[in-house]
């Protein structure tokens, strides 16, 4: 058995950083001062993951206003649109509006990531999967949706190729939020394959905000190394019936509620999955990015995962 932990999405900003962002918008705080605070908080985010035994580390994505935004703002053929609801959350993102051929005309994540803060060979970069990005966009240009998905995948593959990340996670809520027809799942899979062919590191797909259900065998066919499942929406029986050839990203810790899962409860859930399914290797994670929680609660949940990892090492 091999069990580790990782995060699967943006870390919430502390109240001090929220205030700094607002002060900057009002002209009360300089850009440099804001950036220093972001960097300091990114350092703390990296530190708490390291201290809690996470093998793979993210920088916290504290400067991303939403998961799609760097791509929405910087991809050619895409403009920033109005607010749209982020799945079933009281949270919103700015909708990408597709106004022309989507292409990577310049670096997307340059100056967005704090690579230098993360210990060597442990950096995970998180971006949306091409299908989810396309599905959440307002398409005013492409006649065929699949052509949009493929172009988004090409652009993302090109970007990922330039990143010093040992792990790349494609966050894919659209694969489980609603039951997709077969051809849409295949389209999403083909798009991931475009990335797979250009990226040699560990590729993860993380589903959230929905039950995996019947999509489980299809997800296991995706050309990725890790399949992440939102266990706050998925009963364990959805994992039992299939031969699990991938690493499981076990999104057990509820990223949308403030009850702090106890370490022994997390450890017990992991042992349960290992004994009742064919899963051999697990990354314990929150169900989605912890961005829906107050910062202090998010940190407490990370520590709980860390304590669970310690308990599991003793087993």
């Amino acid at each position: 058995m091999k069990v580790s932990g990782y995060l699967v999405g943006p870390q919430p900003r502390s109240e001090a950083l929220m205030k700094a962002y607002r002060d900057h918008a009002k002209g009360k705080l300089s850009k440099q001062a804001l950036e220093e605070l972001i960097r300091k908080e990114a350092e703390e985010t990296v530190k708490i993951q390291s201290e809690n035994g996470f093998d793979v580390i993210i920088d916290g994505m504290l400067n991303w206003h939403d998961l799609l935004r760097p791509f929405t703002e910087r991809l050619g053929g895409v403009e920033v649109g109005g607010l749209a609801r982020w799945f079933d959350n009281n949270a919103f993102y700015k909708q990408p509006v597709i106004v022309g051929r989507v292409e990577r005309t310049k670096p997307i994540l340059e100056n967005m990531l704090f690579y230098d803060l993360v210990p060597e060979k442990r950096l995970k970069v998180i971006i949306p999967d091409p299908y989810t990005f396309s599905k959440l966009s307002l398409n005013k240009s492409y006649r065929k949706f699949e052509d949009l998905v493929y172009d988004v995948a090409e652009a993302m593959a090109e970007e990922i190729r330039t990143l010093p990340a040992t792990h790349v996670q494609l966050t894919a809520p659209s694969l489980v939020y609603e039951k997709l027809p077969r051809n849409e799942i295949e389209l999403a899979m083909d798009a991931v394959d475009i990335i797979r062919r250009r990226y040699g590191g560990v590729l993860c797909i993380h589903t959230c905000f929905g039950r995996v259900g019947n999509a489980m065998p299809d997800l296991l066919d995706f050309p990725v190394d890790v399949v992440g499942v939102d266990m706050t929406a998925t009963p364990i029986k959805d994992l039992k019936e299939y031969s699990f050839t991938k690493i499981l990203g076990m999104g057990y810790v509820d990223a949308r509620n403030t009850i702090i899962e106890k370490p022994d409860e997390i450890a017990s859930a992991v042992m349960n999955v290992l004994s009742e399914t064919s899963v051999k290797q697990i990354y314990i994670s929150p169900s989605s990015g912890l961005e829906f929680l107050p910062h202090t609660v998010a940190c407490a949940k990370i520590r709980s995962i860390g304590d669970a990892l310690k308990l599991l090492k003793e087993v």
């Binding site: 929220m18 206003h65 939403d66 949270a91 993102y93 961005e291 107050p294 910062h295």
Partner: peptide, 11 residues
Amino acid sequence: VGYVKVWDLEI
């Protein structure tokens, strides 16, 4: 229990 983001800088 604390502030959470709704979008961008809105909390």
